[in-house]
Design a protein around this nucleic acid. Structure first.
Lengths: 240, 240
DNA sequence: CAAAAACTGCGTCCGTCGGATACAGAGTAC
DNA sequence: GTACTCTGTATCCGACGGACGCAGTTTTTG
């Protein structure tokens, strides 16, 4: 990853254009989808640092330079991989209210991020979103329609939720991983011998630990906060 | 950034060891702090991709390889930069309750992340935290002592807040930047001509936009949610 | 049916980056 | 003063992203 420059115009066409009509010349041996799939497999295993044009090409039985006929560069390849890895958003659970919908939505997104650890790094900074990404966003706003929240607030909720899901995916190990030593074990080791410097942390770690509930905890607090706002809005509207 | 391997033992010594006693040989011309400072200046300007050992060395009037006498590699340099860039946590505002303390804490952290956009990428995945990072954590847990939350929950609150501050720093432009076109302007342009595909998003963007309040909004919801939990706990304790 | 046009895949080359290694000189302890 | 140790440096290497131009193949046009 030493390429920070993205060809915005070409990336837009790659993300949003429909398959074009009849072309001249020999027919391509590869497809964008296949290239993205190959890249995802490599990045899932070895991260974005392990993702090289060379390896992608090898896994497709092509030369490295052949890829550049399809993709302008590595940055755009990662963007395509991200769009493919996120995929279509799942349908909202039937009969669920806004809270049930958002809860499910956040957990599904968390799962996507956990399955593709490189996705976190790939979603830093301003980006050109793809159709799938916008479809995920659309789901949140749809769930919040008729709750009394303004459009701004609906988008802010989306930002808040996607941030939480993404952040917690980095703390959690990928699903295939063995249990292994978690973050807090290392924290406890670090604190040993420094108890008087970090007394509150030491005390917090002394209490009984039962599994990792950070996703659930944060999600519950966020949804509680949103619920309080919606309730307040409804009360205002009725009384005003 | 093509170095994902970190020498954990040496990094621990670099982050946590005190300056050692008298040494033999010629005295070093550089200090770890000066190197980290130089790296921060470069990364602030051009990001982690613009940060090369060569450039850091040049800005210190040394050869590239001289840096490796102080730092095992680039990954460890970034870790040191992060520790220096975050700095000591600010003192809690006087007389503030837990909510006031956490609100101020989150905004201060947000500010640090906004000033150093590369810090987001530098904090992905499991890491060895430095003294400053643990001191920031300690502040949160201290603020939540005697609120009735368990140690687990106090840590979960910290994860939740740091995630929000960090996530929103990436949406906001660095403080020195001109206003410029924000994210939502690009979103509106993307939606043009696709209104029937993303009806809810289109509607949300049609409502009046007045500035970017995503940080405030999310922070308020999170703190509301925590407050609700604390209140419920207190009620349980009194009635049980 | 022939020829031009367009597009694909590939071989070669280059600049840059992170890092290993070995060496010469400088400063300190005995 | 002498031996030892640590510093800064010069040189070298492999890997990577990407530019460029060539040859072959397929479709369109006369």
């Amino acid at each position: 990853m030493a390429t920070g420059d993205v060809d915005q115009r070409r990336l837009y066409e790659l993300l949003w254009s429909t398959p074009s009509g009849p072309r001249r010349g020999p027919r391509p041996t590869l497809t964008l989808a296949a290239i993205a799939r190959a890249g995802i497999a490599i990045a899932d295993a070895d991260g974005l640092d392990g993702l090289t044009m060379q390896r992608v090409a090898e896994s497709l039985d092509v030369t490295k330079m052949a890829l550049y006929r399809y993709v302008p560069g590595k940055a755009e390849l990662v963007a395509l991989m991200l769009e493919a890895a996120m995929g279509e958003p799942p349908p909202p659970p039937e009969g669920a209210d806004w809270r049930g919908q958002l809860d499910d939505w956040a957990r599904q997104l968390f799962d996507r991020f956990r399955r593709h650890p490189w996705a976190h790094a790939a979603t830093i900074g301003p980006r050109l979103p793809g159709p799938h990404e916008l479809a995920w966003l659309e789901r949140v706003v749809t769930a919040l329609t008729d709750t009394g929240l303004t459009g701004d607030e609906q988008l802010d909720v989306a930002v808040l939720l996607v941030g939480h899901a993404r952040n917690l995916a980095q703390h959690a190990a990928p699903p295939t991983d063995a249990p292994g030593p978690n973050q807090e074990a290392g924290l406890a080791a670090l604190l040993r011998g420094r108890e008087e410097r970090f007394p509150a942390l030491t005390a917090a770690l002394r209490s009984p630990r039962d599994g990792d509930h950070a996703l659930d905890f944060g999600l519950a607090r966020i949804l509680d906060g949103i619920q309080a706002l919606i309730t307040a809005r409804a009360t205002d509207a009725h009384s005003g």
